[in-house]
Amino acid sequence: MQKKLFTFIALLFFIFSQAQQVNYKRITIQNPTQRIIQNLADMGLDLTCGAVINSQGLQLELSKEELKRVKNKGIAYNVLIDDLTKYYADRATKNLPNAIQELEAQKTSLHAKAGFGKTSVSNILFDNIGQYNGCDEINWSTPTNFKLGSMGGCFTVSETLAELDLMRSLYPNIISVKTDASPNNNQTTLEGRTTYYVRISDNPDIDEANEPETLYTGMTHSREVSSLMNLMYYMWYILENYGSDPAITSLVNNQELYFIPIVNS
C-alpha cells in the first residue's frame, strides 16, 4: 500500500512538473487559406486572442502539443521565436533599467511639475470627480514613492506586501495596516497565501458606518499584473496628495476606500 502511495505521489509530481515547463513558440503560417484557418479553428486553437495577421502571414503563439497537431495536419509553418518564456524574460531584464530611469526622470521633471500645477485634479475634477470627459489628457504628477518591481518592472507578491507596509509606515493617519481579507481571518489561497486588504480614509483604523465605501481590486485573473501596478500607482498618488489637493482630500475625508491589490495570489 505504501509503495502504491509513493508511486502515485511521484506520478502527480511528474505531471505537475511537466505542466510547469510548457514551452510556447511564436510561429507564422505563410499566406494561410480559408481552409487552413478553418482547420486551425477545428483543432481548438484560439484565433481571436493573440493571433496576428501581418505581411509575414498568420502569427500564432502555440505550445508544443498544439504545434504537434498543426504538423499532423500537414500545415507548414516557420518558427519566429523558439522559447517565448525566455524571450519575454530576457526582454524584461534588458528593458528594466531604462524603464526605471524614465520613471525617475518623470518624478524630477520640472515640466511635469509645472504641468501638474495647471491641470491638477483639484482644478479639473473637484466639482465632478471621476467624470472628466475633456479632450486633453491630464498631466498627472508621478508619485514620488512609486517604483517598479523586479518582475519585468512589476511587483512580486512579497514586494507588493512590502509596499503596503511602507505606505502604512509613511502615512499611518490615512491608511490602515494590511489585514487578512478572508471572512474568518484564517483562510488562504490554493497555494497557501493570505489575501490582504488596506483601507484609506481619514480614520483608517475605524470602520465609519456613515461613510460610503468603494472597493478597488487588482490581479483578479492570471497575467493581469498591470492592474496591480495601476492600483499601487493610484494608492501612492492619493497618499502623497492628501492635504494638498482639495479633491483628493475630500475623497479621503468623505469615503472609505478599500484596496485588495492581489485578489488571485
Score class of each variant (00 low, 15 high):
247 A>W: 04
123 N>Q: 07
170 L>A: 04
188 T>E: 12
147 K>M: 05
224 E>M: 03
26 R>S: 11
212 P>L: 02
1 M>Q: 03
197 Y>Q: 04
54 N>P: 06
49 C>H: 08
100 I>C: 12
256 E>W: 02
156 T>I: 02
222 S>M: 02
138 I>R: 07
165 D>G: 02
153 G>H: 03
263 V>N: 02
75 I>W: 10
118 K>L: 15
260 I>E: 01
28 T>G: 05
227 S>C: 06
115 G>M: 07
48 T>I: 04
214 T>C: 05
158 S>V: 05
99 A>E: 09
225 V>I: 15
195 T>P: 01
240 E>R: 08
208 E>K: 13
197 Y>L: 13
12 L>W: 03
177 V>I: 13
116 F>A: 01
47 L>M: 05
210 N>S: 15
232 M>R: 01
68 K>D: 15
138 I>A: 10
180 D>T: 06
146 F>Y: 15
238 I>T: 11
11 L>R: 00
26 R>L: 10
197 Y>P: 10
56 Q>N: 13
135 C>D: 13
265 S>N: 14
249 T>W: 07
190 L>I: 13
40 L>M: 02
100 I>H: 09
217 T>I: 14
5 L>K: 09
252 V>T: 10
142 T>V: 15
172 P>F: 04
67 L>R: 06
96 L>N: 04
43 M>S: 03
118 K>G: 00
155 F>P: 01
218 G>N: 06
107 K>Q: 08
176 S>H: 09
